[in-house]
Design a binder for these strands. Structure first.
Length: 557
RNA sequence: AGUCCUGUGGUGUAACGGUAGCACAAGUGAUUCUGGUUCACUUUGUUGAGGUUCAAAUCCUUACAGGACUGCCA
């Protein structure tokens, strides 16, 4: 029985109708077929959630298939990262559901032979340039390629010799014999096999001919008994060829291809080619650099699989070209982290505060709530003393109207601590503020005043001698901007050289003591993730900064 | 230029001939020991023009706009 789904997109409608009609005997099989030539990115997550989601909802299965038909760019590292990322997203990859397109090379070869025997394929000796003139273009139909005149025996012999390695790379290809006048260029005798003497990471040197996508993919689907082959819009124009191959080889019942629009997110580079370029040219450390929009990068950035799945769910599935607002992704991450991330006090850019009426050398412990959204998260003890650090941005010498943190003569609350009042400001020769001398109100311990007086501002702080200093690597939001219409050449110039900077954190507890992968929210500093790989922490995002920006903007007006 | 696909608030989507709804974003106010969270409210939409119909976002025609395609990549 299909499980209840709240989603109702056109893909699910098709699957539902086929399921109800018993089209495949009530069996639903989908597949997610990445080429292992790079790491998975957030765009793949949408496809993964769709492919696995549909299968699960209809009691079917989803195959993870490595589409390894072009060995020039593929390797095992990518295979491993893909499996890891799919599982991390929350979709179990059972050994029996893991497939490799290259395992079907023998069957694909047999299918090619059958097409030749049916006079539906022939060996073409034309060079790419010669083929271009025969093929015609969108306005002029193609002409009869010379290879079409060859006999079945001749083609069989040539194709067998292609496999046997008798010809140079690129000397000839196997082509389907379809329609040289078709308005769909993909139907003008498309190439089925090419000669490539390249070591395949799984098949070794067993093959020197490799099948093309259009020939291979539909056969992979058919071999695995896929019922619904869901892919992105750019393959729409390939569908007639998908159908042609399977129908002419007599697969019945056979899989059908359905297309949905791929994910685009504002300010986000979503092209494997460009991401590879960022890695190759050392603009980022690797595919899993937290600045990358890859699944692995998001993991190190502190995004959770739940949040990413939620994002994919609310995206919807359509055939419209769309550009999703990055704010929607961030909303999903925030929504999840808000209820799950423990809070800690931390100061990124410290300013010394001395409480002149607090006993020298005294340290007391104050109680802080770990997560206001979740009482089960409990409380913790925070050391407090005479010398503290606060955030530089939480003090202003000449506060504008509407600023309710610390300023000369003003009173603020130290979160979970005391009310303090700024009484004196120490500056250096250049006039920079180097220290605040303040007094604290002993009756406000814990943060509330017995006389009921209110303070508008609550700031975070750390005790100077007990605070742990930790090096933190902060990544600013996104490093590259891709707007619709931006050319390939533009996009690298958008890289921000300041996007990575190292600063000092005075905070508690020791970040190194937090388990790797922990997400914490530093009070008013945004969410951070303790990097599972380096135990450094990454800022996930910081809504406070956004608010500060808009506040600053208001002041500027 | 040709062929195919797609047009619903700023963005992403729902409504399958019968009340244009939801989420994000934006704005206003309230709450708050995070300028966070939460809550309430508000703004903004069927690409244009014709038809069919008692009734059209939905069906038809057409114009316009956007996208995909012209690898021996996937």
């Amino acid at each position: 029985m299909p499980e209840e789904s709240t989603k109702n997109d056109f893909i699910r409608e098709i699957v539902s109708a086929d399921y109800a009609a018993g089209k495949y005997g009530g069996r639903i099989v989908t597949r997610f077929p990445p080429e292992p030539n790079g790491y998975l990115h957030i765009g793949h997550a949408k496809a993964i959630c769709l492919d696995y989601g549909v299968a699960r909802e209809f009691g079917g299965t989803c195959h993870l298939r490595m589409d390894d038909t072009n060995p020039t760019k593929e390797n095992m590292e990518y295979v491993e990262s893909i499996i890891h990322d799919v599982e991390w997203l929350g979709f179990k990859v059972a050994p029996e559901d893991l497939y490799y397109a290259s395992d079907y090379f023998e069957q694909m070869y047999d299918c090619a032979i059958r097409l030749i025997e049916k006079k539906l394929a022939y060996v073409c000796k034309l060079s790419p340039e010669e083929w271009e003139s025969v093929r015609g273009n969108s306005t002029t139909p193609g002409s009869e390629p010379p290879g079409r005149a060859q006999s079945v025996e001749e083609n069989l012999d040539l194709f067998r010799r292609m496999r046997a390695g008798e010809f140079e790379d690129g000397a000839m290809v196997l082509r389907a014999r379809i329609d040289m006048t078709s308005p769909n260029i993909h139907m003008r005798d498309p190439a089925l096999y090419r000669i490539r003497r390249i070591h395949h990471f799984r098949q070794g040197d067993k093959w020197c001919i490799y099948p093309m996508y259009d020939f291979a993919h539909c056969l992979e689907d058919a071999c695995e008994g896929i019922t619904h082959s869901i892919c992105t819009l750019e393959f729409e124009i390939h569908r007639p060829l998908y159908d042609w191959v399977l129908d002419n080889l007599g697969f019945d019942p056979r899989p059908h291809q359905y297309e949905f629009s791929r994910l685009n997110i504002s300010y986000t580079v979503m092209s494997k080619r460009k991401l590879l370029q960022l890695v190759k040219e050392n603009h980022v450390r690797n595919w899993d650099d937290p600045r990358m929009p890859t699944i692995a990068g998001f993991r190190r950035r502190g995004y959770t699989p739940e949040a990413i799945r939620r994002f994919c769910d609310i995206l919807g599935v359509t055939k419209c070209n769309s550009l999703t607002d990055l704010a929607l992704l961030e909303h999903c991450i925030r929504e999840d982290l808000n209820v799950s991330a423990p809070r800690y006090l931390a100061v990124l850019d410290p300013l010394k505060v001395t409480l002149r009426n607090y006993p020298e050398g005294q340290i007391e412990l104050l109680e802080g709530i770990n997560n206001p959204e979740n009482p089960a998260a409990g409380t913790r003890q925070i050391p407090f003393g005479r010398t503290l650090y606060i955030e530089k941005s939480d003090f202003m010498l000449q506060p504008p109207k509407g600023y309710f943190r610390l300023a000369p003569g003003a009173e603020v609350r130290l979160r979970y601590g005391y009310f303090i009042r700024c009484e004196e400001v120490v500056t250096d020769a250049e006039g920079n503020v180097t220290e605040i001398i303040a007094s604290y109100d002993p009756s406000t311990r814990g943060g509330s005043a017995p006389d009921g007086r209110k303070v508008k501002g609550t700031i975070h702080w750390v005790e100077a001698t007990r605070a742990i200093s930790a090096e933190a690597r902060l990544y600013e939001r996104l490093f590259a901007v891709e707007t619709p219409g931006a050319s390939d050449a533009d996009f690298l110039t958008e890289l921000n050289p300041d996007s990575m900077r190292v600063i000092e954190i005075k905070g508690e507890p020791a970040l190194g003591e937090l388990p790797a992968g922990t997400r914490v929210q530093f009070e008013r500093q945004g969410y951070f993730c303790v990097d599972p790989d380096s135990t450094r922490e990454h800022r996930v995002f910081n809504r406070t900064v956004t608010l500060k920006d808009s506040w600053a903007k208001q002041q500027g007006k």
